[in-house]
Structure formats: structure tokens, C-alpha cells
Simulated assay, not measured.
Amino acid sequence: MPYARHVLCLPLAALSLLATAPATTAAGDGGWSLTPATGGADGRPYVYAEGEPGTVLQDGVSVRNPGGKPLTVRLSGADADNTRDGRFTVRTEPADTGAWIAFAGTTGGHRTAVRTLSLTVPARTRAEVPFTVTVPVGAAPGDHPGAIVAVAGGRTSAVRVQLRVPGPALSALTVEHVTVRGGRIAYELVNRGTTVLTPRLAVRADGLFGRVLDRAPRTLPVELLPGRRIRLTEPWPHRPALDAVEVRLTVTAAGGAHGSGAASAWFVPWGTVAGTAAGLLTAVGAGVVVRRRRRRPPDPGADDRPGRDVELTGAMT
């Protein structure tokens, strides 16, 4: 894995502009791109750095402008973050790794390290932009995810910076707020350790008459950052029609992280129940009508029927 070199300072002359052939234009974004500086034949998906507290690490990013006009780009450091559903994003106000990132710049005509760098990349040119990560004294062991963010032409792009501080690290997570409704199992994962986790999820559900769901562990398409909470859902299209079940989720990750959570759910075919209830009410209602008809009092206007006058007259004498 590529690694960052240890340096004491960042020279201003480290910024270089390299002519490049026109690149394939990304759809709808003007064509410019931000990538880690060249780190092999296939490049690197992100920047990885590891250093003790108090050290200064150096690496770089490339800004490629394949267009026919100069491109002004604004670069800055940021803390990485998870969205609510686990996607990668960045925080607008860095407090950790983003605040440790600096670029070569000038202030009052003097060379200095700046938190934000604005540069113009000529047409059909690639700019190699070095940066440093200063690991502060007292930085906690573990992962400190960050990013280099570039803004140009109304678009924002970012390169991840995976910084690790050596030392005892904690790998821990919990599964919380498990619910079952609408054909889906919803749950929350919380990274309570100091390392980035790629969770593996297993799902099991037991009903009154045995197991009704058993999914083997699989890797989730998320990277859960330290201290972050995300909410995910698991589809369950073929759930029981009538049963009482307990659903249990078990999540594991590298470093011995293990967590589980459970929820109970009742599955009742309410449409069938409603139809049956309506039929019973109809039948009961009909029986009441019949009983009421049978108990109707005699009709006063029907006294000309045979035997009726004789019985009434005899009772009155």
C-alpha cells in the first residue's frame, strides 16, 4: 500500500504543472478531475498515511484540466463523515484530520502553509499539488479519516485521506433500534471504536413453528467511520402471512467487533381477518332480524282470523 513520506517542511516549488493529452470528459461536470497523485501504474483510490503524534506527513493530489480554458480550483482539507444511510461525505467545518491538512502558499509575500489554496490550472494541463498532514501531539491512536476537497466550475470533488495514528486501537460496534414494518427490517449501526469498519451482516428470524429467515453473513457496502451512526434497511419480501417472529441481526467487523440486536413482530393477514369479521357480523345481524321477526307482537288489525274472537270473548266474560 502506498505510504506518505516524513518531511519537516513543504516547499512552495513543489507545485508542478504537467502537460497532458485531452482526457475523456465526465458527463455534465466540465471534465476536470481530482485524484491522488500518481502512485503506481493503476493509480490509487485514496491517500493513505500513517504517522506518530508530532510528525509531519507529505503526499499530493492531481487536478486535471482537459478543457480548452484555464480552470481555477479551490482546495481545502476536510473531515470525512458518513451520511445517515452510510454514504461517504465530508464535514464543512473540519475539526480533526481536515484541520491538520495544509498546502504551500504565500501570505504577505512569504512562503507559508495555508489551509485553503486557490490555483489556476491551464488548459489541457495536470497540476500536481502537494500537501502535508501534521499529526498533533496527543492525537489518539486509531483512524482519522479526512479528505482533500476541490471546488471549481460549480462542482465539488474529493479525495479520501486515510490517516492512521499507531497505537492501541479499539474495534467495536453496536446494533440498535431494530424494527420490522412494511416488508423491511430497519436498524442502526454505531461505530463505538477508533477504527473504520466494514461490517458483515447476518439475519435470522424464528417463528412459532420454526425458522422463517436465515441469511448468511455478507459484507455491507458501507465504511462506518469512528463515532458515526448510520441507519440501514434489509428487505424481507417473503415474510410469513400469519406468525409471531423474533428477528435477530448479528454484525461483525475486523478487529473482533461484534454486535447484535433483535425485535419481535406479528404478521397478521388483516384483509382476511377483516373479511371474516365482516361475514360474521353479517350472519349475526341476520340472526337478530329473524329473531326479531319471530317475536313480533300480534297485529291488532288481524282479529277476523278463525278462533281469535272466541278466545278473546271467553277471556273477557
Score class of each variant (00 low, 15 high):
residue 4 A to G: 13
residue 8 L to M: 07
residue 12 L to H: 14
residue 17 L to M: 12
residue 21 A to W: 05
residue 23 A to L: 14
residue 34 L to N: 11
residue 34 L to T: 08
residue 34 L to F: 12
residue 38 T to R: 00
residue 40 G to V: 03
residue 41 A to E: 13
residue 44 R to S: 11
residue 45 P to E: 14
residue 46 Y to D: 04
residue 55 T to Q: 15
residue 57 L to P: 07
residue 64 R to S: 14
residue 68 G to S: 14
residue 71 L to K: 05
residue 74 R to V: 13
residue 76 S to A: 14
residue 87 R to T: 13
residue 88 F to L: 09
residue 93 E to I: 15
residue 107 T to C: 10
residue 110 H to M: 10
residue 133 V to F: 01
residue 138 G to C: 07
residue 149 V to N: 09
residue 156 T to N: 07
residue 158 A to G: 10
residue 163 L to H: 01
residue 166 P to Y: 06
residue 167 G to S: 13
residue 168 P to S: 13
residue 184 R to F: 06
residue 192 R to S: 15
residue 197 L to M: 09
residue 197 L to Y: 07
residue 203 V to W: 02
residue 205 A to R: 06
residue 213 L to S: 07
residue 214 D to T: 01
residue 220 L to D: 07
residue 223 E to W: 00
residue 223 E to P: 03
residue 225 L to E: 05
residue 230 I to A: 08
residue 239 R to F: 10
residue 239 R to E: 15
residue 247 V to A: 15
residue 257 A to V: 10
residue 258 H to T: 09
residue 258 H to R: 12
residue 261 G to A: 04
residue 264 S to I: 00
residue 265 A to E: 14
residue 265 A to W: 10
residue 269 P to H: 09
residue 272 T to F: 02
residue 273 V to C: 07
residue 275 G to T: 05
residue 278 A to G: 11
residue 282 T to S: 15
residue 288 V to K: 00
residue 294 R to F: 01
residue 294 R to Y: 06
residue 306 P to N: 06
